[in-house]
Simulated scan of single mutants.
Amino acid sequence: MAELTKKGVAGFLARQGILVAFVVFMIVFAIANPRFIDIDNIFGVIRSSAILGVMALGVTFVVIGGNLDLSVGSMMSFSTIVVLDLHDKIGPTLGIPVMFAMTMALGAFIGFLVGYLKLNSLIVTLGMLSAIHGLTLTYSGGKNMDIADKEGTWFGIFGQGSIAGVPVPIIMFALLAIVLSIILSRTPFGRKVYAVGGNGIAATFSGIPRARIVFMTYLMSSFCVATAGLIQASRSLGSQNTVGQGMELEVLAAVILGGASLLGGAGTIFKTVIGVLILGFIQNGLLLMGLAFYAQYVVTWIIIILAVWLDIAAKRGRLWSPIA
């Protein structure tokens, strides 16, 4: 009985190591500062993490499919600037769908290059990072963007509104996570994404349209980026044209922290959400502890490495590699 119990605990840790690490971090920060578990603080952290989280949901599909997307930061800047500009030119009712179409066109182009032309995703998306940044600066004329009439628009609901006391960005993040989790775990498309990322050649010989699946993952990623851009633009009704610069690394860190493999074929939406929350709550906890902002970067890095190490150790049943 004791042996079965031990195996059961080990099995749980192997499956949910990152979740256990998240709970441990929450307990430590709560002990260090009781304000950490205040409901307003928790809502504030999740709300501020929603933009990063929404982007990470889409990138999860790309990574599980065996590829990378380093263009999401500059693409988010593009979508934010475009929707703010179109708000004043044609109104938010038309501006929002047009922005989604333009952003997803960029995602489709990347998906075509990686999926159908079979170009290296790292090189393609790294190049698109610079190209889309240049496109954003060209579109905006190098200027930041602001809505002219901030008082007379309903556009702010996406970033500033709340429903039953719950901020709208949190609701959008949660709903999108639920829908995408169902798509990834309970649909034929989701199973094909895992198959393509796990072994692309075997998937092709099994009759799975590998190029189309890769194309669709980038299309889904760009949809999520457009959603994040909508929230960002709505939050302050204005934006710098570099608002998303550098976010691609944070997004990738959240996805990998959540357990997705850079080699493809492994990962879940739920654990990506946990990865996003770990990043958000670590930064918030360190802030409440009064740590200098420059020291927070180092401590955050150490905690991320520790969390990933504990997760991997739980899966292999030992702290150190057997070949070390």
Results as ranks from 00 to 15, higher is better:
118 K>E: 14
93 T>P: 05
157 I>H: 08
3 E>G: 14
295 A>L: 14
259 G>Y: 10
319 L>Y: 08
223 F>R: 05
271 K>Q: 15
162 S>N: 15
148 A>W: 08
86 L>K: 04
118 K>T: 06
191 R>C: 08
110 I>T: 09
44 G>P: 09
202 A>L: 03
124 V>F: 02
125 T>G: 12
235 R>N: 07
181 S>L: 01
294 Y>F: 13
207 G>H: 06
223 F>Y: 08
52 L>I: 15
239 S>M: 01
308 V>E: 07
16 Q>E: 13
276 V>H: 04
201 I>V: 11
16 Q>R: 12
292 A>E: 13
157 I>S: 11
162 S>E: 14
188 P>M: 07
177 A>C: 07
157 I>N: 09
246 G>M: 03
276 V>S: 10
36 F>E: 06
86 L>V: 05
10 A>W: 10
290 G>I: 00
280 G>L: 01
24 V>T: 07
215 F>D: 05
305 I>P: 10
107 G>F: 02
29 F>N: 06
316 R>F: 07
190 G>Y: 00
194 Y>R: 03
215 F>Y: 11
150 K>H: 02
1 M>H: 14
270 F>M: 05
258 G>W: 00
303 I>K: 07
19 L>I: 10
278 I>W: 02
7 K>F: 08
288 L>R: 12
216 M>G: 04
323 I>Q: 14
116 Y>G: 13
210 R>Y: 10
237 L>P: 09
22 F>G: 14
6 K>C: 09
202 A>R: 00
212 R>L: 10
139 Y>S: 11
68 L>S: 04
97 P>E: 02
31 I>P: 09
257 L>E: 07
12 F>C: 12
81 I>G: 11
10 A>V: 08
63 V>D: 07
191 R>P: 05
41 N>M: 08
323 I>R: 15
235 R>T: 03
240 Q>G: 15
140 S>A: 12
282 I>P: 14
184 L>N: 03
66 G>C: 05
52 L>N: 15
28 V>P: 06
230 L>I: 05
155 F>T: 06
26 M>D: 10
218 Y>G: 08
46 I>H: 07
88 D>P: 11
240 Q>D: 15
63 V>S: 07
106 L>K: 05
247 M>C: 02
67 N>R: 12
49 S>D: 05
189 F>T: 03
324 A>V: 02
313 A>H: 05
118 K>R: 15
189 F>D: 06
306 L>R: 03
246 G>V: 01
297 Y>Q: 14
134 G>H: 01
258 G>D: 03
94 L>C: 04
22 F>I: 03
275 G>R: 02
146 D>F: 14
